[in-house]
Write a protein that binds this DNA or RNA. Structure first.
Length: 297
DNA sequence: ACTACTCCCTGCCAGC
DNA sequence: TGCTGGCAGGGAGTAG
């Protein structure tokens, strides 16, 4: 499921095909995804050159020469793929899986770069939880979808001190707090479970227990900050290796097979050295949580 | 302000 | 074999 690392991998995978290319035509094959496409979207982007591909949290941002920005979300099942020329497979590039279910190809960017064969970037999304909206670059950070996003879980900004500030007086669970996009933006169910496992913290622990009365981070907060950054950094690196190893991909850019320590591993032995526990599944806030009750406290 | 719940949508899979 | 129901999940919306 596309969380921040997957979206970043998609961004990097699309960049060579899209950056600097001109949109000859935007083909919308239905009126909506999760939300209706903006009025006049196809007309407004036709002929525009793509100046950059960006990302904020789980949002892919397609910046156009005229200042317009397409805000794309992959939802749960969204993926992109790149098709070259007339659709023939191109060795060493993302190739077409002819057998792929094409009825969920909802959006097609028809692109052309100077001196290159035309190509298509196809957005496929069976469950249509994704969406594609448009805003002006000047309004981007005030857009309702982006304005309230919290810290990116990459880099040093996500510190023990930052966690302490977020978690002070929070009575909710660590799991729910980490899933809250207004606190940390970009974590989803998988990486929250993995980060909590790595930090040895129970997802059921109250978020406020990582903060002292004086508002300072406890050692647990430091462990958690470190675990989140490591899990995200490793997942992005893993996505990068998936991109390099595209001989094994089917050409789609959306989400990848990773091996997880606890996620979706109910009843499996905890992989931590010296731990004899078993991974358990519980439901928190309507979502599955996987953790080891033995070493996560 | 904070918390927790429902809903959207389709594909997949276990159980009958 | 074909049906049914549960589950997956991000985020908007809503209610308390």
């Amino acid at each position: 499921m596309p969380e921040l690392p997957e979206v970043e991998t998609v961004r990097r995978g699309l960049e060579p095909a899209m950056q600097g290319a001109r949109i000859e035509r935007l083909e919308l094959r239905r009126p909506d995804l999760r939300f209706p496409f903006p009025e006049g979207l196809a007309q407004s982007v036709a002929g525009q050159k793509i100046s950059a591909l960006g990302r904020r949290a789980k949002y892919l941002l397609i910046h156009l020469e005229n200042g317009q920005v397409l805000i794309c979300h992959l939802g749960m099942s969204g993926s992109f793929r790149v098709e070259h020329g007339d659709g023939a497979e191109t060795p060493g590039q993302f190739h077409i899986a002819r057998s792929r279910d094409q009825k969920h190809d909802h959006v097609i960017f028809h692109l052309r770069s100077a001196g290159q064969e035309p190509l298509r970037v196809v957005y496929n999304d069976p469950r249509r939880f994704g969406f594609m909206l448009s805003t002006s670059g000047a309004d981007l950070h005030d857009h309702p979808l982006l304005a309230h996003l919290g810290l990116e879980p990459t880099g040093n900004a996500l510190s023990a001190e930052a966690l302490a500030t977020m978690f002070a007086n929070r009575s909710t669970s660590l799991k729910a707090a980490l899933m809250d996009q207004s606190l940390i933006s970009g974590l989803g169910n998988i990486y929250v479970c993995e980060a909590l496992w790595r930090a040895g913290l129970s997802p059921r622990r109250k978020a406020s227990t990582l903060v002292t009365r004086a508002g300072q981070p406890t050692p647990r907060a430091a462990r958690l900050a470190q675990a989140i950054r490591a899990v995200i950094a490793e997942a992005i690196a893993s996505g990068g290796s998936t991109l390099r190893d595209h001989a094994q991909t089917d050409g789609s850019l959306g989400y990848f097979q990773h091996s997880f320590s606890v996620y979706d591993r109910e009843a499996v032995a905890c992989p931590r050295a010296q731990c004899t526990g078993t991974v358990k599944r519980v439901v928190q806030n309507g979502r599955s949580t996987f953790y080891c009750p033995s070493c996560q406290r």
